[in-house]
Amino acid sequence: MLELVVNGTPHAIDVAPDTPLLWVVRDHLGLTGTKFACGMGLCGACTMIVGGSALRTCVLPASAAVGQAVTTIEGLPAHPVKDAWIAEQVPQCGYCQPGQIMATVAFLETNPNPTEQDIREGVTNLCRCGTYDRIRKAILRAAQARAAASASKVEP
């Protein structure tokens, strides 16, 4: 039995431990918001946040996530990144966007005030619809919103 904590909920799952985390979450836990696209960790559609890092879970054995907090798009609460994605009307087909959003959430944790070049290098997920220009705008918008939110927290 594989013991995983996904979106705060502990699960004991009867699955081969080398099964990629993506497929455990999709097929065994029924959380299909995270997408399969390349199976080689090349595109990022399968990005989840595992132990605080954005990881491409189509090539991550589920056993590697034991003892770490796993967050999927379904477990992401109301968040400035999701708000920014709506405000900039980013998605087209939408298939890669949960991965883009999860990658961005982790990216902004480590780089809360990115430049455009930081974004180009830091969020590398592929999008076939070609929404990159809006993704960049949304990331900048989300960064500003996070900064504003934290500023309002420290001020009385």
Binding site: D27, G30, L31, T32, G33, T34, K35, F36, T72, I73, E74, L76, K82, W85, I86, Q89, V90, P91, G94, Y95, Q97, P98, I101
Partner: peptide, 26 residues
């Protein structure tokens, strides 16, 4: 605002790979 974007942003949008049918095999 596009009607299809909220589910595409919160992960609830259903694509072909996400279909669940009772009794299905993979």
């Amino acid at each position: 605002p596009r009607l299809d974007l909220p589910p595409k942003v919160d992960g609830t949008a259903v694509f072909g790979v996400d279909v669940k049918v009772e009794g299905m095999v993979h």
